[in-house]
Amino acid sequence: MKKVSFAEFGGPDVLQLIDAEEPHAGPGRIRVAVRAAGVNPVDWRVREGQVLGAHPTELPAGVGLDAAGIVDEIGEGVDGVEVGDRVFGEGSSTYAEFAVLSAWARMPEGLTFEEAAGYPSVVETALRVIREVGVLPGQTLLVSGASGGVGSAVLQIARDRGITVIGTGGASNQDYLRGLGALATTYGEGWTERVRRLGRVDAALDLAGSGVIRELVELTGDPRRVVSIADLGAPASGVRFSGVAGSVPDALAEAARLIARGKLRIPVEKSYTLAEAAEAHIDSQAGHTRGRRVMVV
């Protein structure tokens, strides 16, 4: 089978499309014929060797955590799923023609494989950071870097819970953020004053790692009311860095419920082939994503 792999840590140029042996589903796992794989910032952080504590990596290594596809192999002890089912979920080395998943759910009706591949890690992360930052219904949450996949999910989940959301993003993404129910403003010079004019901030999330931790602490008045998923230096300011996943099966079930209720929809901004994995990582690292990027197999 074809698979994206890297034999050394480094830039996008270390990614190679290789012929590899097919993986097989062990106990408690399923294998899918991958139709699409999500492109997440953690993918290139793993490739660069940034997050070895949370993601131990033995070289050579595959790439990718999220996938949507068709079940074609079921491991021992697995029930509730059959060969031929359309599922989305999380596993390892998902930039490939076949991948083993450790958590999965049936794809909600009406989603394409490309759309479904964009949800697993994104929704798990969104649910986790909303929980960790402790924001409650009736309060206001500031989301820095709100137009990407996690931000898109946070805005919709928070609004469904009765939380007011202020989202920062580029000028071209203001209408997109408002369409997701956020009070939107641009980043750049004077952004904190623009946020203050929109209302009091009870909690804040840093989703872009753009060097705004100090300002987020000032806006909330308490570093314990700020959580980052993108700035590895955040703990130096007393801010929690969230990098360890919670229950992925629960997150997938919640994603399916929200999608079915029409409360969650994350658009696919751009799709890539496996041969374009390096380009996908370059674009992901550049930021400014609106929604999701996915690999199409």
Rank of each mutant, 00 (worst) to 15 (best):
S93M: 08
D231E: 12
R257Q: 11
V51H: 04
G243M: 08
A277D: 09
R214H: 15
W44D: 04
G62R: 05
L205T: 12
P249L: 13
T192H: 08
P223L: 11
R225V: 05
T186G: 03
G170F: 01
R257E: 04
D19M: 08
G170C: 03
G211Y: 11
S228H: 05
A117W: 05
E189L: 14
E132D: 12
S93W: 00
G53P: 12
T57N: 11
V122N: 05
T273P: 01
L17G: 00
G162M: 10
I213S: 00
V133C: 02
G262K: 06
V244W: 06
L142A: 01
G181C: 09
K270Q: 14
F113A: 01
I30M: 11
R225E: 10
F113H: 09
P41D: 10
T125G: 09
L52R: 14
G89P: 07
E193T: 10
S5Q: 12
A277M: 10
I163W: 08
G28Y: 13
G221H: 14
A184E: 00
P23L: 06
G53A: 08
L219S: 07
V217G: 03
W44Y: 14
S144F: 03
A184S: 14
T168I: 11
A184L: 05
G69T: 14
P12K: 01
G188C: 13
T185C: 14
L183Q: 14
V135D: 01
L252G: 01
V78W: 08
A253L: 13
G80A: 07
F6L: 00
A251Y: 03
E8Y: 04
G80I: 14
